[in-house]
Nucleic acid binder design. Sequence first.
RNA 1: GCCUUCAUAGCUCAGCUGGUUAGAGCGGUUGACUGUUAAUCAAUAGGUCCCUGGUUCGAGUCCAGGUGAGGGCGCCA
Length: 504
Amino acid sequence: MHTKQLEKYVGQEVTLKGWVANKRESKTVVFINLRDGRGLCQCIIGAEEIGEELFATAKSLGQESSIAVTGKVVADERQIGGYELHVTGLHVYQNARDYPISNKEHGIEFLADNRHLWLRSRRQWAIMRVRNSISYAIHNFFQNEGFVQMDAPIFTGNAAEGTTDLFETDYYGKPAYLTQSGQLYGEAMAMAMGKIYTFGPTFRAEKSKTRRHLSEFWMIEPEMAFCDIFENMDTIESFLRAVVLEVVQNCKEELEVLGRDVNKLTTVAKPFPRLSYDEAVEILKGKKEVNGQNSLAVIQADLDKAIERQKTCEAEIAERETIIAAGGIKKGVINFNQNKIDSLKNEIKQLEEDQRNMPQWLASARDFTYGNDFGGSDETVLTRLFDNPIMVYDWPHEIKAFYMKRNPDDPRFARGVDVLAPEGYGEIVGGGERETSEEWLVEKINEHQLPIDVFQWYLDLRRYGSVPHSGFGLGLERLVAWICKLDHVRETIPFPRYYGRLEP
RNA sequence: GCCUUCAUAGCUCAGCUGGUUAGAGCGGUUGACUGUUAAUCAAUAGGUCCCUGGUUCGAGUCCAGGUGAGGGCGCCA
């Protein structure tokens, strides 16, 4: 029996088991918001119905106490979930004391230290359910399309793209690295199965302190035989579309808890814009408009808006401070105003940070050097003009990995594709068509100064039945962050690992 | 690695240009109140102002160094 089944038991007596999410009490009645992992249900405990002794127990319950309550289900539109329980019986598993996370705001460091408890909070509950739903939708899509799921090794001996950003471990006396991609193994498996996908952890020892990096994250890497860059982009597009729409369909309540505007997500039903690197650079530098909009002008307008907004916030703070200073008002009114002032001050801090960052983004976009990779801020500027994920393909071959196939019509370019999510979420997918020629690959491996020996097995794939093939890597946490519209990827995974964070 | 912002009660923060006993809200405790949605009201406890050194008659406040954290860049998904 759980809170989502209550509608079938209106008027009947049921028992719910869960935790005390919140409690309010008066002389003869105690209200408990019971949390059971599925949802919430307010339980009303009246002194007369339950008896003096149990009522005293109910009154003494601390936040997150574990209990079982028995009572009659009553429909009540005002309640979360639409039902409440009129309690006649109470069993206490544990009466918890001093639960550290209150219903007030907390700082990020405190919450991260208490991640094991933070997961019980309503927003985190919603995020974890969306994450679960995304995983399920991903498997659904690939399984329906005939892909075979494979598990790539986590220990690797070859430091494929340089050792600096890999975690080194000891493997029976030899150095081994935690994988930063299963792609090369995926290619081998695709030659055996036709179409495969990996779904597993990935490790990067990058000392990044940004809202879109983790040291340990989950990546989904499909690989398809007999597939070129354009078929690859078709797959990426229908894949993302299917996953997002399925999640929007299945997580209505969760997305509502998160305050997510789902109209910003359902746009994925429309085709994704596809831009060549050259076109993207033109747009980024403000030399080419999109739907009559100039990228630099739009960011400049955002910056102006931030300045305006700060002035509005400051004026409102001054106004509320005057109200408090005037005196002669109730304590509740003072609290209300002080809370407003606090949150306005927080907003100003964010706005000030925006005002420090955005001029840098503008300068970076304006002065962008053709031939470079896009930086995080360039992605933000570029995607600001679109309401759907965009696909940027045909990159200068120098900045792409050694295994990327060169464009046969224009060898300056490699057939890579990056998918950039809207709303500033940046790169969620990176992929491309793979080089099929052993000769070209060897040349590239040497060019990148990589040890040729460890790639002999990889070159075998080009020696025995080499075929055009493509694939991509999807960052699960970045997808979760975008779908949930979160500030930071560290909220997208139960126990995030990022620079400086190993506990809990 | 670089740039930038910050560190005050269990939590979230205020503390103006240095000046007596360091403040608020939440949370805790005690009490009031039949229905609250972060309830409300009253009372009450709770502090090595991150660390080290310096300037000064006097430092939470200024300076230097350190430690920790937030954000941005690089790197990437």
